[in-house]
Design a protein around this nucleic acid. Structure first.
Lengths: 213, 213
DNA sequence: TAGATTGTTAATCGATTAACAATC
DNA sequence: TAGATTGTTAATCGATTAACAATC
């Protein structure tokens, strides 16, 4: 088997599909499936088999011609590509409804994401715990991000405070931001920002339904 | 001004940017800005001005050459395109952390989305209210979706129940599904599904940070 | 008028799909 | 071996970017 093809630029679309492959493989494994074809995997995910083979080929040769993919092996390979074998320390800023929901989300740790701290400005909330994770004052962000080696910051504060929080996260030494506030964040290019803009989903839904109903 | 160019197929990418334009125009309007150029708008959103002009040109001519776009007018036009002037009745299925957060999300109604009902299986929750919206048994879905003319269903149940809920929503007469469960839903092609797969965001973040740190 | 900025066509870039040789 | 399925190259499709005439 070839090693990873370094140098090749891999499309964002491909990267975004890898987690789907990983998740579906995991489910298949739990069902006791040991070998899966790109056809079968694609059917489960809603992606063409050619797409899957193309995506995977960017990283190596993980299948067996005439046979398919060994579920366990492909899972391990994709997990390695995605860096899921590694532990990431994360922090949430903003304990509103969404921040609270995310802080209670149980599936972070099995995926290697370890919630280390929660930040808020509300003095009523500071000092409390959500699932054994302490809520700290935002003033202590730098100290705690550094002490606990937190690499990823999650922003669930209202839009008007999001840029300030992003800047604080960056100054505290965070490397990636998962942003739920509906604003464009200005951060250095070295910081990786993933934005979840929930308002887009409903509006685009409205567009499509308008033309139909 | 031309009317909407019917027949033209508009890319999903374009549709997904319209809500960003709309939101940014709204903010600009609140700041008292009356005219905005594609350049300025693009700078605020993080999109090229050419992209904006191209996107808008699919629907008509909304600007004034040499001047820019009248904020109020462009907002009204995009709102109309997105169907935001219309009222949509929505329902949430699943009062977990995320469902609860969404049920408490205050910004639905100003955007024209009216939460009419919440569904759950938990008898402790049924009969209670979240922000004056009642939680009903899932058994009553058909009746309530029909009575209240609910067009959009939001799925925030655990992955293993999502398909069942989707099927029930469809049978109840819903036209669109906003799905937060990490599964591919099998529904008739006429049903518009928007999926928010939150697990993808963190995993892709992990990919990019792995190569960097 | 001169400068600015739109709307649109053409060029480029990127991603998906099709086809098929390789091979298990 | 024959059938199945991968990995990859080529073809197609779609989306973005560049360029510029139109015009306010």
């Amino acid at each position: 088997m070839k090693e990873h093809k370094e140098n090749a630029v891999i499309s964002k679309a491909t990267i975004d599909r890898l987690p789907l492959y990983y998740r579906t493989l995991k489910l298949s494994q739990q069902e006791g499936i040991e070998i899966i074809s790109s056809d079968e995997l694609g059917r489960k995910i809603g992606v063409t088999p050619e797409q899957i083979r193309k995506d995977l080929s960017a990283f190596g040769e993980f299948g067996k011609k005439g046979v398919g993919y060994y579920v366990r092996e492909l899972m391990r390979n994709i997990g390695e590509i995605l860096g899921l074998n590694r532990k990431w320390n994360i922090a949430i800023a903003g304990v509103g409804h969404l921040g609270w929901a995310l802080a209670n989300y149980a599936n972070f740790s099995p995926q290697g994401f370890d919630l280390q701290a929660i930040f808020d400005v509300d003095t009523d909330k500071i000092g409390r715990y959500i699932n054994e994770v302490e809520i700290f004052s935002i003033e202590r962000m730098k100290e705690i991000v550094s002490d606990r080696d937190i690499q990823i910051g999650i922003i669930t504060v209202p839009a008007e405070y999001a840029q300030d929080i992003a800047t604080r996260f960056v100054e505290a030494g965070i490397k990636g931001i998962w942003n739920f506030a509906p604003v464009k964040l200005n951060v250095p290019a070295s910081i990786h920002v993933v934005s979840e803009d929930l308002s887009v989903g409903l509006s685009s839904m409205s567009y499509y339904l308008s033309r139909q109903i």
